[in-house]
Amino acid sequence: MAAPRHAEIHKDVQNYYGNVLKTSADLQTNACVTPAMPVPKYIREALKNVHENITSRYYGCGLVVPEHLENCQILDLGCGSGRDCYVLSQLVGEKGHVTGIDMTRVQVEVAKTYLDYHMENFGFQAPNVTFIHSCIEKLAEAGVQKESYDIVISNCVINLVPDKEQVLREVYRVLKYGGELYFSDVYASLEVPEDIKSHKVLWGECLGGALYWKDLAIIAQRIGFCPPRLVTANMITVQNKELESLLGDCRFVSATFRLFKLPKTEPAKRRQVVYKGGITGHEKELLFDANFTFKEGEVVDVDGETAAVLRNSRFAQDFLFTPSGATLSASRGCSEELETKEIIRDPFKLAEESNTVKPRHAPGGAGGCCGQRKSC
């Protein structure tokens, strides 16, 4: 019975975002919130180079742009009309490549229409962007090859797919070792009851299909990913009283996580690390996740899991490493006693501590999780 139910959900999502919603003002929740962090200047500059006919079809979703993108191969799950792809195109450069995949044919065709315009505008001799019409849980059917991408991004699309584990399995398959999935999505404080799952509006509003946040780690590690690394989190509120009453004790949060696919190497050990600086847009300070902000030249004591991620990913060249407790010289910022800190993994805890509840149309940046460009 799963297949017919999944097909019905796909159809409902397409109808909700294609016909029911006309503008973001029609949304019943603030799942479309501004990001917890300001959009860096280099990303804002890249946005200015995207054609207005592309940006005008981008209905409130925020940017999901990780760091250190030069020459990378990137896959965007649920690319819509291609705004993020054209931003990323500039950041990876001519030697990199960006692939966007979306189930909505009209959106993909719009994205393709402006391919030549953007390549000429960016000064590229050959296109470094490709668009594919397909579902994000069917990457193999779409011809996406095994271990072909350095980074996969997704902005509040996975929650709209019934089989989330299949999406993550496909992402794991197409990522290179050392690669990561950097994604925003909506999570629930408990297992979502069936009456919420079956509610078409709540599913379309990114709540009905939300994953219980603890299940993300279970699914991810079952597939082979490292434990999820929490980056940011915002509480979601519901403006519609009728819908709010249906939710009961179930709360929702919009959160960004990083999932790394690492090679099976030696057991992870604590390390002291020093950020060398120089990553574009993060030259002096790299906010890696909710637990670690690395300042140029400063010694930081990290757990074995974090050390393994840094040593085996594209960030390896940006850090100096030494065994924990050893003497590591740094240009500045070295503290005599490096404290062991509690790792925050609960997005609700982070959202509450940060007091990041925001109004639905708060100014000052790109929107957060949902919008009309949904894919599957």
Rank of each mutant, 00 (worst) to 15 (best):
T232C: 03
G367D: 00
V299H: 09
S354H: 11
P66V: 01
L216G: 06
V13H: 02
M119T: 07
R57I: 12
Q145A: 14
E353N: 09
S81W: 01
G80K: 05
S331H: 04
K95Y: 13
V92M: 11
L350W: 06
T29M: 09
I132R: 10
A351C: 03
A308I: 05
K349E: 08
Q28D: 13
E165G: 11
G325A: 02
R251H: 01
V65G: 11
D215T: 06
V167E: 11
D301K: 12
F131R: 02
A255Y: 01
V39Q: 01
L91K: 10
T306Y: 02
A330Y: 00
T293C: 03
K164Y: 15
G297M: 05
P323A: 05
I344S: 03
G278S: 03
R311Q: 15
I136V: 14
K214L: 06
A351Q: 08
A362V: 09
I54M: 01
V238E: 02
E45D: 13
R258H: 09
W203R: 13
K112W: 11
T256P: 05
T55Q: 07
T340R: 03
A2P: 09
P4N: 06
A210T: 10
R105H: 14
E336H: 14
V167Q: 01
Y117E: 06
V64W: 08
S81M: 10
C206I: 02
E205I: 06
L216M: 11
A210E: 00
A36M: 01
P359E: 07
K197M: 02
N15W: 15
R83I: 13
K295A: 15
L211D: 05
N155T: 14
F319M: 01
T280D: 12
R83G: 00
G96F: 00
R83K: 13
D84Y: 00
F315N: 10
R311V: 02
A188H: 07
P227K: 07
T356A: 09
I9H: 11
V174P: 10
S134E: 02
P228H: 13
E45I: 12
K22V: 15
F131N: 04
A290V: 07
Y86L: 13
R360A: 08
I101E: 06
A111T: 00
I43L: 12
S354N: 09
V33A: 13
T293W: 02
A126I: 14
S313K: 01
S329T: 10
A307K: 05
